[in-house]
Design a protein around this nucleic acid. Structure first.
Lengths: 210, 210, 210, 210
DNA sequence: CGATAAACGAGACGGTACGTCGCGTCTTCTG
DNA sequence: CAGAAGACGCGACGTACCGTCTCGTTTATCG
C-alpha cells in the first residue's frame, strides 16, 4: 500500500481534507439529521468541492458511516477505569457525564445509519465496531474481573450480560427517544445486571429467603 | 365523523384502497427498505394513483408508520398464552416460530423508521406502542404472575426487566443484523432474566459454590 | 397521434409551459450566449422545474434548437413584399430595419448552434429550414420574377445566386463579427447579385466598355 | 526575448511538446467536435500533463484557436498559382483536391470556434486571418490581375466579390453541412463570380441582349 | 332521473438533492 | 526548474423522488 502510494505519480490526496470533510459532516449531521444532511452543504462547510467528497466516499451513506466511525473518541478504554473493588462500583464508575453525552451523540447518529445498514450489509461490522463494541467490551471486562476476584459466580453468561446495557441504551435512544441519564443506567445496573449475577442490591434485605 | 361523512356529497372513499396501499407499502418496505421505498412504486404496486395515497396519508412517513402499525397481528396477547406454572415455562412459551418471524419483520421495518423518528417526534409514541409495547406488556404480565404465585421476590424491578428482552432483540436486529432465533432468546432468558429474578437455571449445579 | 393523445390518461402537458420555456431559453440565449445558458436558469426564468424542461427536450441542445426554430417569425414571406417593378427595387425592399435586426438575432443564435450541428447531424435540416431557407426562398422568388418579367436572362443560376446574400450575411455575422447593415447588403446587391445577372448598377456608366 | 530566455534559470521548455499537443488537439477536435473535446483527453493523447497545456495556452479556447491556426498549411499563396491567362482558368486552378480537403477541415474546426467568438471578440481577428483571409486574398489577387490584363472592367467591386467564394463555402460547410466539392465551387465561379464581372460562361450565347 | 360533487388512475408540475464530469489551478514527484 | 500525473474548488449536467395539481372517468347522493 505504502509502496503503491509512493510510486503513483501525481498530486497526493490532501490529507487535511478528510478530517475537514468528516468534521463538517458530523456537524451537519448533528444539526439537521441524516436526511437533512446534504453533500453540497457538507462540502461547502468544509470549503471543499463535491468532487473532493466523492473522490473519497462513494456515496452519502459511506461518508456518514465514516463520520460516525470517527466519533469513537470517548475515552472509555478499560485501563482508564478505576478498580473500585466491587462490580457495582466499577459499573457505576462508567457513568460519567461526558461519557453519557458521547454515547447519546453516537446513538443519535446511529439512528440515521440503521436504515442504511439494510442496504449496505458490508457496513454492519464497522458500525458495530464503532458504536456498540467499546461499551460492551468494557462491561465484559468488568464482569470478568468480578469473577476473577470471586465476587460473582464463574458460570454467569458474561457475553449476554455484557450486551444488556448497550442494548437497552440503544433501545431507549433510538426507539423510545428518552434520554439515557444516570437514573436509567443505575436502574439497569441495580435492576438487571447485579441481580443477574447474584448480587442483591443493599436496599433489599439480605435475602434470607431462598 | 360518521355524520359529516354521510352529509358530504360525492363519491365515497373506496375502502378497499386503504389495505391495498398499506399492503403494497409493507411489501416494498420489506423488499427495498425505507429509503428505497418510493411513493410512486407503492402506488403502482397497489394500482393506485399517487393522489389516492396522499389523500389518506400526508406524507411518506405517515404512510410508513401506519403500515407498520398494521403489523401488530402477531397473536401475542396475554390471554392466548398458557400458564405453564413456572416463569421459565411461560417465557419459553412466548418463543413460537411464527411469533419470532413476526417480530423479525417488525424490527426490520422498524429499522426504516428509526431515522424518521428523529424528525417526527410525534410518531414516537405510535411506533413505540405498535412495535415494542406488545412484547414488553406480555413479559411484564408474566413477571407479575410469577410474583403473585410467589415464585420470585416481589421487589424485582419488573418494569426494567420487562424491557430487557425487547431491547436486546431490537439491538440484535437493527444494529448487529443477526437473526433473533430461539437460541438467542433462550440465552436472554437463562442468562439474564431468570438469574436477575433469583432463579438459577437448572443446568448449573444447585449453588453449592459460593 | 391526436387519438393516442386523447386516449392516454393522466394530466395533460401544460401547453403554456412550452412557449414559456422557449421564450426564457431565447432570452437567456440572447443575453449570455449558448454556453452561458444554463438549464437551471432557463427553468427558473420560466418558473418551471428542471424536470419539466427535460420532459420536453432531451438535452440542452435540443431545447436550444427548438428555441431557435421559434424565431422564424420575421414576416418575410414573398406575399408581404411589394413588386417594385425592378429586381433591384425588390431586393432593396427586403432591407427593412426590423428585418435586419431579426436576421442579426437569428444569426447570433445560430452561432451557438454551429458547433452543435457537428454532433447532431439530424438537426441540420431543421436549423437550415429555420434560419437560412426563408431569406433564400425570397431571393429565389425575386430572381424568378425578374426572369418572368424579362428583366434578366433566363439562364442565370438562380439557385446559387439565391444563396449569395444569406451566405455572405452569415459569414459576416458569424466569422467576421461585423454588423450586417444596409450598406453591406447594398454592396452585395450592387456588387455581386445585379452584375451577376447582367444588370450594371446605374452608378457605373452604361457599359460602353467592352 | 531570446536574451531573457537565455538568462532564465531552470529547465527549458520542451519545444517538442507544442506540436504534440496541437496535433492531439486537432485530432480530437476533428473526431469529437469542439464541445466533445476535453483538455484531459488532449493532454492524455499528447502524453502531456494538463499543466503543460495550460502553461502554453490560457484556456481551451486559445488552444483550439492556435490549433486551427496551424491548419494554414494548404499551399495557397499567390505565387504558387499559375497565370493561366484567363480569370476563369485562374479561379479553377485554385480548386485542387488537397486544397479542398484542407478548406473542408478548416471549416469543420471553425464550426467549433464560432460559438467561441461570441465570448472572446479578441480572437475574431486571428480566426479571421487564419481561416478566411488566405482564400480571400488569393481571389482578390486574381481579380486584380484580371483587371490589369483588361479582361474585366476596372470598376467591379473586388473586395465584395473576393468574399463570395469563402462565404459560400463557409455557409455550405458550417450550416448546410454539405461537402464543398468541385462542382459546388465551379457553380460559384460560373454562376456568380464570372457573370458578376461581366464574363458570360461559354455555355450561354454571347449575350447580345443588353 | 339528471345534476353535482367527490374519489379514482394516471401522470405533469415546481422543487431539491443526487452523483458525474469538465474547467482551470495547484501540488507532488521525477528527470 | 519543466514535465507527467492527478487532486483541488467550482459549477452545470441530467436523473429521481417528493408532495401538489390537473386531467378525464366513475360512482354516489341530492334536488
Amino acid at each position: 500500500m505504502t509502496e503503491a502510494e509512493a510510486l503513483r505519480p501525481g498530486r497526493k490526496r490532501d490529507a487535511s481534507r478528510d478530517p475537514a470533510i468528516l468534521d463538517a459532516a458530523i456537524e451537519v449531521l448533528a444539526e439537521t439529521g441524516y436526511e437533512g444532511m446534504t453533500i453540497d452543504l457538507v462540502a461547502a462547510r468544509a470549503k471543499a468541492g463535491k468532487a473532493t467528497v466523492y473522490r473519497r466516499w462513494a456515496s452519502k451513506n459511506e461518508l456518514v458511516l465514516e463520520a460516525v466511525a470517527c466519533l469513537k473518541t470517548a475515552g472509555l478504554d478499560p485501563d482508564s477505569l478505576p478498580d473500585t473493588g466491587t462490580l457495582r462500583g466499577d459499573l457505576v464508575a462508567m457513568i460519567k457525564p461526558h461519557s453519557i453525552q458521547d454515547a447519546q451523540r453516537k446513538m443519535q447518529v446511529m439512528g440515521g445509519l440503521v436504515s442504511m445498514l439494510t442496504r449496505h450489509p458490508e457496513l454492519v461490522e464497522t458500525a458495530q465496531e464503532v458504536i456498540v463494541e467499546p461499551r460492551v467490551r468494557v462491561t465484559r471486562f468488568l464482569l470478568r474481573r468480578a469473577i476473577d476476584r470471586g465476587e460473582i459466580r464463574a458460570d454467569v453468561d458474561v457475553d449476554t450480560l455484557a450486551l444488556v446495557s448497550s442494548s437497552m441504551a440503544a433501545h431507549r435512544t433510538l426507539i423510545q427517544r428518552k434520554p439515557v441519564d444516570r437514573a436509567f443506567l443505575i436502574s439497569i445496573i441495580d435492576g438487571v445486571l447485579l441481580p443477574a449475577v447474584g448480587i442483591v442490591p443493599e436496599t433489599a434485605e439480605p435475602a434470607a429467603a431462598r
